[in-house]
């Protein structure tokens, strides 16, 4: 883990620049618009509002037994918010090095800054929305003690996104096709996760596919905490830990093998 440790150290040293870059990234996304920063939150908020109105107000659809909540809209929203954040962070993080090629060739900056910026920017948009969900859904179970685990879950989630985004950014620098392939998988990924369906709805023969999706454990964890007020099950933590370790090992190898030539590939 020597290579990864060095990257994390460089990232920590450049943390002020990281926050500045994330702030600028946010500003750049709405530069030239009249409503400005409102647009960053309007898009996911509108999506949430539509799901709530359609499933919980108009059709009043209900889930069966074993679901963390009976309201279909609430179930979808709690899964979709982290999924949208994940898609945003991973997609932007994956292309971050390619986009920063000219800058990296002329300035001695840590490469880890760029995927980290994508994850941090995603967090700055979606964390307030997650907090809003806390205030909307946790009163239903009187702010249970499980809520205390939310920061840990979010921290693990952000670490996982960074490891995945940085790994993909290195691979995308080597082979641009990865951007298209990952884009496709992010498109279908929500169907292979507990975001749109209950895990019990998956045919047993392909239920393993759920765990091949890195977002399955954290989404299950968020559903437990926000919708049931229950501690996430051990498999959630084990699943996240397995993904974190696997991604850390992969990223360490990728950094080690590409270190000397990564900038040349951009």
């Amino acid at each position: 883990m020597h290579a990864l440790t060095a990257e994390c150290t460089a990232l920590w040293r450049a943390r002020r620049l990281l926050f500045l870059m994330a702030r600028r990234d946010l500003s750049a996304r709405h530069a030239g618009s009249v409503l400005g920063i409102v647009w960053l939150y309007a898009q996911p908020l509108l999506t949430i509002a539509i799901y709530y109105l359609v499933f919980d107000v108009v059709f009043r659809m209900r889930l069966g037994d074993g679901a963390p909540t009976q309201a279909v809209g609430a179930y979808l929203i709690v899964g979709l918010v982290p999924w949208m954040a994940f898609s945003d962070a991973v997609l932007r993080g994956m292309i971050s090095l390619l986009e920063a090629g000219a800058l990296l060739q002329k300035n001695p900056l840590p490469t880890a800054l760029f995927p980290a910026r994508a994850v941090l920017t995603g967090a700055l948009i979606y964390l307030p929305l997650t907090l809003a969900l806390v205030f909307v859904y946790t009163p239903m179970h009187h702010f249970g003690a499980a809520l205390l685990l939310l920061p840990l879950l979010v921290a693990a989630l952000l670490a996982m996104w960074f490891l995945l985004a940085y790994s993909l950014a290195i691979v995308a620098a080597a082979v641009r096709d990865v951007v298209q392939i990952v884009g496709f998988f992010l498109g279908i990924g929500a169907f292979l996760s507990p975001v749109l369906f209950l895990p019990s709805m998956f045919p047993p023969a392909i239920s393993w596919l759920l765990w091949a999706n890195p977002m399955t454990p954290p989404v299950l964890g968020l559903q437990s905490i926000l919708l049931s007020g229950a501690m996430p099950r051990a498999e959630v933590w084990l699943g996240m830990l397995a993904w974190l370790v696997a991604l850390a090992v992969v990223l360490d190898r990728l950094v080690d093998r590409s270190r000397e030539q990564l900038i040349d590939w951009l």
Binding site: R24, A28, A102, N107
Partner: peptide, 24 residues
């Protein structure tokens, strides 16, 4: 090595100064 790398076209010269200054 190259002049102007890191400038964002949508931001003003003053805003770019602050960011590009941090970069170097």
């Amino acid at each position: 090595l190259e002049l102007g790398a890191g400038f964002h076209p949508d931001f003003t010269g003053r805003e770019n100064l602050r960011f590009a200054g941090a970069l170097i």
